[in-house]
Amino acid sequence: MVKKRLERFISHRLDQVPIASVYVKSRGWYFVIAWAHRLCGILMVLFASVHIYTLSFLSTPALYDAKIKFFGLAPFAFLSWMLAIPVIFHALNGGRLILYEMFGSRNDNSMTRWVFSLSIAFVFLQGLLMMLWSRSVSMLFFWLVAATINSSLACIVISKSWKATGSIFWKFHRITGSFLLIMVPAHLMLMHLQPGISQEAAMVIARIQNPFIKWIDLGMLFAMLYHGGYGLISITGDYIESKVLQNGLAALIFLTMAAFGWIGTRLAIMI
C-alpha cells in the first residue's frame, strides 16, 4: 500500500519533469531511459579519456602530483562524487538491457525499479564513504571479491551468447559491458574516494605495481575502450546517413581508443 502510494507519488512527480515529460507521453519512459543511458555513456567516455590522460603523468611523479592537487578542490570533489550517477546508472541499466535482450527477461518494470533504487543507494553510499572512509582495509581483498563476482557474471553472458546467432562485435560489447558492470563502480568506490588528497603518485604507483591489480586494470582499460568505442560507433551508425562520414568517424573513434590503449598499456608496463 505504502509502496504503491510512494510509486504513484514518484511517477506523478516524474511525469512533470520538463522536456522528459513530453517524451514520456509520446514515447514512453523507456525511451527517456535509453537516452539517459546514451548520454551517461558519452559522459563516461569523456571522463575516462581525461582520466587516462592524467594518469599518464605518472611517468613523472612530480608533475602528476602537481596536477592531481588541482582535482582536490571542493568543486571537483563534488563533481567526482556526481560521477557516481552516470557510472552506476549506466552499469545497472546496462545490466537490465542484457537481461532483457539476451536472457529473455521481460519483466522490465521491476528491473527498472531495481535499477533506480540501487543507483540511488549507491550514490549515497559513495558520498558517505567519501566522507568517512579510512584507507586501512586491504584493497586487494575487495578487488578479489569484485573481480571474482564480475568475472563469473561475464562468463554467464559469454556462455549465453556463444552459440547464438548474430554479430560477434555486438556480443563482445555485451560481454565487456557485463565485465565492467561491477568493476567500474567498485573502482570508483575504492579509488576515487578522496580525490587529490591521498592520491600521491607514489601511492598510485605502489598500487599498480601489484601484479594482480595491474592485470585487473589492464583488463578494465581494454574492456572500457572497446565498450565505449563500440557505443560511440553505434551512435554514429544510428544517425549519420553518409556512409563515408560514418566510416571516417568509426576510424577516428577506433584510432582514439587505440591511442588510449597504448598510453594505458605503456604506463602499466613502465611502472
Partner: peptide, 25 residues
C-alpha cells in the same frame, strides 16, 4: 537499443521490442 518506444506507441499493441530482442538473443 531497446528503448521500447515501438511497443509504447504501437496501435495494435504488439510488443515490438520483444521480437527485436528475440532476434538479438
Amino acid at each position: 537499443h531497446s528503448s521500447r518506444a515501438c511497443s509504447f506507441v504501437c496501435p495494435k499493441e504488439i510488443d515490438v521490442a520483444h521480437f527485436v530482442a528475440l532476434a538479438k538473443a
